[in-house]
Amino acid sequence: MKRLAILGSTGSIGQSTLSIVESYPDRYSVATLAAGRNLESALEQVRRWHPRLVSLATEELAAELTSRLRALGITETEVLWGTAGSVACATHPEVDFVVSAIVGVAGLEATHAAILAGKPIGLANKECMVAAGEILTAAARERNVPLLPIDSEHNAVHQCMRVGTLAEVKFVWLTASGGPFRQLPLEQFTGITPEQALKHPTWVMGQRITIDSATMLNKGLEVIEACRLFNVPSSQVRVTVHPQSTVHSLVEYVDGSILAQISVTDMRLPILYALAYPERPASTLTFDLAALSHLDFSQPDFERFPCLRLSYEAAEKGGAHCIALNAADEIAVDAFLNRTISFMDIPRTIEKVLEWTPESHPETIAGVLAVDLQARERAREAISAAAIRV
Results as ranks from 00 to 15, higher is better:
S234D: 11
E134W: 15
S23K: 15
V54R: 00
L198I: 12
E351N: 14
S213T: 13
S55G: 08
E40D: 13
I20G: 05
L354F: 10
Q207Y: 02
L72F: 04
T83W: 00
G36M: 03
A314M: 05
K219D: 02
S23W: 03
H154R: 13
H154S: 07
L308K: 03
V333F: 11
D151C: 09
D334F: 08
L310G: 00
E59A: 14
K170T: 04
A117N: 02
S213F: 11
Q261G: 00
G318Q: 05
D296E: 15
V98W: 14
A214I: 13
A5H: 01
D334A: 14
D96F: 09
A110Y: 05
P201Q: 13
L337R: 14
A214K: 09
L295T: 08
A274M: 10
G85W: 05
V232A: 02
I350N: 03
Q261N: 07
E64G: 00
P25K: 04
D266A: 07
H242D: 07
V223R: 02
L65P: 00
S360Q: 14
A138V: 00
R208W: 11
A176H: 12
M267I: 14
P146M: 10
P93S: 12
P362L: 07
T246P: 00
R70S: 15
V169G: 09
S100M: 10
A176N: 08
A110V: 04
P201M: 14
R339Q: 15
V241G: 11
F287K: 03
L72D: 13
